[in-house]
Design a protein around this nucleic acid. Structure first.
Lengths: 92, 92
DNA sequence: CCATCATTTAGACCGTCGTCTAAACGATAA
DNA sequence: TTATCGTTTAGACGACGGTCTAAATGATGG
């Protein structure tokens, strides 16, 4: 994992609202965007912005299903991030 | 680990300069602040600012030794953070 | 005590970013 | 095709935060 990618993930995790979104997505196989909207105290525009950042960080992927956008967690990116964290923050 | 603490750690890890500082500290048993200063492209004031954030997040601890401040990594906080990450980002 | 070295604090500057409103775009159903 | 629902984009605003300079504080040695 490149340092850029590493940093994008770190930043994506650092905002409470965005982390909340990621956490909700991770609980399901797939989440329709509109469901998320109803659970959050931010506007659709703000939600869309956070989803883009999560997607840029490759923490989620999105897929259009007719009028809906479906969201899926990408656990392999988190795994890569944790691995890199462990690698960098060890004495070796 | 409280969500506040969790968020402090996430934020502390999200800045490249600050992460670099943490990484350097983690490589040694103990690092004198003045050593760190010589390896970084920021002023002493900025370094001091970052060290405070790392200490608030409990990612490092500091100790005064005469005129010097010695820095130590606290791996147990990282471990707690990783655990919390895994707990929150899992389907269960 | 004074000079000097190490660190912190105060205060300012400025870019980044989370948020909003309003408007545009995409897709479907009638 | 038009009305409607879901989502994105554009643009603005305000707060936060990383950075600096300058001054203050801590600590030691001569």
């Amino acid at each position: 994992m490149s340092f850029d990618q590493f940093q994008r993930v770190a930043k994506a995790l650092a905002d409470p609202t965005r982390f909340d979104i990621l956490e909700k997505i991770s609980k399901e196989q797939e989440v329709p965007c509109v469901n998320l909207k109803n659970q959050l105290a931010v506007t659709q525009a703000t939600l869309s912005h956070h989803l883009r950042e999560l997607e840029d960080a490759e923490l989620i992927e999105t897929r259009r299903e007719g009028r809906f956008v479906m969201l899926r967690h990408r656990p392999e990116t988190m795994a890569g991030y944790l691995e890199e964290l462990n690698r960098r923050l060890s004495k070796a």
